[in-house]
């Protein structure tokens, strides 16, 4: 009797992310009839897509023991740039240029962290304010409209495939690639090893700086994709969106059981973390609860998730 109780507790602790997720699903369904409607679910997944896409990059960064605070600013700056680019170049070119700009910003963080050995928190904090400022400079402080010639972009942003919103499809793609990389590819294994013991990896003859650099370049690119999705959905690039987005992303990764010390985390749990965070907002909106309470509950769930993980380590 006692041992079966123990086993149950052990099971709950081990699978805490998925259990919290299922619990949220049940609570949501009970709380509102509107939750399990195709419309609402599509809405939910569309809403979480920007955070979700970036969270996969953040997972890689955090696995190496780093952090990236600049992603919210990148989302805003690329949103603006993408809208501006549509006014002067063809849409495919505008998309490629926007993506590259995001990768460049991420690469600057990557350079500061991997070559200059700057603390990731500091390096990306600096980039967070620089890039936010650049967004305002490029847009002259006002939202920038997407050119009429680029209506394909806005069509994509509001469109869907087989009932799945297009941004969600991108999210699923990014999630799938990350999951496969982490599980079956040497790249994922090296990132986890670096986060576990960087010096041992370096002394095994692996070029640690290259890998640390790469994760920041990747998250820069993913933040750019999220920025473009935002512009595609609304038709404008606005320099003041995405403030605090980095915290939502980090929260999702942490709820997913990733250790901020690096070396431990999974794509699936991070994905669930994103959904949990999204569901809190979604269900409370359906129930007409003020956003202030949402913030409190979000914080409580983060604490709960981290406490459960602490048990897991013991």
């Amino acid at each position: 009797m006692k041992s079966s109780l123990k086993r149950t507790i052990h099971f709950i602790i081990k699978h805490n992310t998925i259990i919290i997720f299922l619990l949220m699903l049940v609570l949501s369904a009970l709380a509102s009839n509107a939750f399990f409607t195709p419309n609402n679910l599509a809405n939910l997944i569309r809403q979480v897509a920007p955070v979700g896409i970036i969270s996969m990059g953040m997972l890689l960064v955090i696995l190496t023991g780093g952090i990236d605070l600049s992603v919210g600013s990148i989302v805003a700056m690329i949103g603006v740039l993408c809208a501006l680019f549509t006014q002067s170049m063809s849409l495919p070119l505008a998309i490629v240029a926007s993506l590259l700009a995001g990768i460049v910003v991420g690469s600057i963080s990557g350079y500061l962290v991997s070559v200059q050995k700057m603390a990731p928190f500091i390096a990306t904090l600096a980039l967070m304010t620089i890039v936010r400022g650049l967004g305002f400079i490029f847009s002259k402080g006002a939202p920038v409209m997407v050119a009429d010639s680029a209506s394909a972009l806005t069509d994509f942003g509001s469109g869907s495939l087989l009932g799945i919103p297009n941004p969600a499809i991108i999210l699923f793609l990014v999630f799938g690639i990350t999951a496969v990389l982490l599980k079956y590819n040497i790249y994922g294994r090296i990132l986890i090893a670096i986060g576990s013991n960087e010096e041992a990896v370096r002394l095994s003859g692996i070029k640690v700086p290259v890998y640390k650099f790469s994760v920041y370049a990747i998250i820069g690119g993913l933040a750019a994709i999220s920025g473009m999705i935002g512009t595609a959905r609304t038709g404008v690039g606005s320099p003041n969106i995405g403030i605090g987005l980095e915290l939502d992303v980090i929260a999702a990764v942490v709820i997913g059981g990733t250790s901020l010390m690096g070396g431990k985390g999974s794509a699936l749990n991070t994905f669930l973390g994103v959904l949990i965070l999204g569901m809190i907002g979604n269900i409370m909106n359906l129930m007409d609860i003020a956003s202030y309470s949402q913030q409190v509950i979000k914080g409580l769930i983060i604490i709960l998730a981290v406490l459960l993980q602490r048990f897991q380590e013991k």
Binding site: A193, S196, N197, A200, L203, S204
Partner: peptide, 18 residues
């Protein structure tokens, strides 16, 4: 500096010859 305690024996051994 030598072993990565949290990784498996396999992952440790492969590390120098991925």
């Amino acid at each position: 500096q030598g072993v990565i305690l949290s990784l498996s024996i396999k992952q440790n051994i492969s590390l120098a010859n991925l």
